[in-house]
């Protein structure tokens, strides 16, 4: 009798949560898993502009769904049972993680990046929804697979405790999670999970109530951009645009505010769901992603100080309206495709 020893393999991803999901599921034998599939089945694509709230003194905008949802939804679709745990006591959190390490179970950890030593200082903000995998311990250091990195790294016990117990909004509270039970996953299940992911994303982007989320939310941002210059002054308005670009393009999105990742998902979905319209719609989202990039370039000209007239802000807003329309049409088509 041969016992196949499971070997943890580091996989680099665009986004941390997709990456953790992909690596952990592959470790548990689901070799078909890819970042775009995890992202799509977990309905990661989204848009939300929260009014009256500022983050790091800029607008609160997100291009993706709530932290944790991608992993939960993807696992649920595949019948994978997930164990999650948060801790009130630091000692209990350390004990639990060390026990899992001893058992040889790779574990997903939610961490804050402010005290993450291997991040460049320029990127260390109080952002508490970063994800990484602990896959072992050596000489008192945790062995870390951070999905946004090319290679594996490590963290001291002290640093690990700090990042697991970072405080503020979305505080991780020592949050750990890992697949507990992975059964047999059939192609039919994958297909169903893909369809579910597509339907849910279409619903989120088209029918979320109010005017601040989904494709309507993109228009809401456009409306705000038109008044920022008068309301906040050219400098601060420029900083606000900079924040939009950072949310949209900074490490973790795969470019174009996750739109390229979603387009890649639709392309891969076609392997399981034979419906050629998926490929056409993948093209539409590539186009949307390209426009998001063009919009970033446009905003960049403003905050670099080369252009800073009201008409330049109007131009940026117009681009967002165009993007909103393209995505709206694409999601309508997507929601109407006969998939089963």
């Amino acid at each position: 009798m041969s016992i196949m020893e499971k070997q943890f393999k580091h996989i680099q991803a665009a986004h941390c949560e997709n990456g953790v999901a992909t690596s952990l599921l592959r470790y548990h034998g689901l070799q078909f898993m890819t970042e775009p599939l995890a992202f799509g089945m977990g309905s990661g694509i989204f848009y939300l502009h929260i009014p009256f709230l500022t983050i790091s003194n800029g607008p609160a905008i997100t291009y993706r769904s709530m932290p944790g949802w991608i992993f939960s939804r993807t696992c649920k679709s595949l019948g994978v049972k997930v164990h999650r745990e948060k801790f009130r006591s630091e000692e209990a959190a350390v004990k639990f993680l060390d026990q899992k390490v001893k058992e040889g179970v790779p574990v997903g950890c939610q961490v804050g990046v402010f005290n993450l030593p291997y991040f460049p200082p320029e990127y260390r903000f109080h952002f508490n929804a970063h994800n990484l995998i602990v896959y072992g311990k050596e000489n008192g250091n945790y062995l870390i697979s951070d999905p946004v990195m090319e290679t594996v790294t490590h963290l001291s016990e002290e640093d690990m405790l700090k990042v697991r117990f970072a405080k503020g909004p979305l505080a991780p509270k020592g949050h750990v999670y890992f697949p507990e039970e992975v059964g047999i996953v059939t192609d039919e299940m994958i297909k169903k999970g893909i369809i579910k992911g597509i339907k849910r994303s279409s619903r989120d982007m088209l029918h979320i109530p109010g005017n601040i989320g989904g494709v309507a939310g993109i228009k809401y941002t456009a409306k705000k951009i038109r008044i920022w210059r008068d309301k906040l002054g050219p400098r601060k308005a420029g900083l606000y645009l900079g924040q939009i670009v950072r949310m949209q393009e900074e490490i973790g999105t795969g470019g174009g505010g996750f739109r390229f990742l979603f387009a890649a998902f639709l392309e891969q979905a076609h392997q399981y769901v034979k419906q050629d319209q998926l490929l056409e719609l993948s093209e539409e989202f590539t186009k949307a992603g390209d426009l998001w990039r063009a919009s970033a370039v446009n905003m960049g000209r403003i905050y670099k100080g080369r252009l800073n007239e009201q008409k330049d802000f109007e131009e940026s807003a117009d681009l967002l309206i165009q993007i909103s329309d393209i995505e709206k049409q694409a999601f309508i088509k997507l929601s109407k495709i006969k998939l089963d």
Binding site: G58, G242, V245, A296, G300
Partner: peptide, 17 residues
């Protein structure tokens, strides 16, 4: 997928921040 060393548009936004 491909690897990128960075993008000037992003760098400028971060520098401004």
């Amino acid at each position: 997928t491909d690897l990128s060393t960075g993008w000037d548009v992003k760098k400028q936004a971060l520098d401004n921040a």
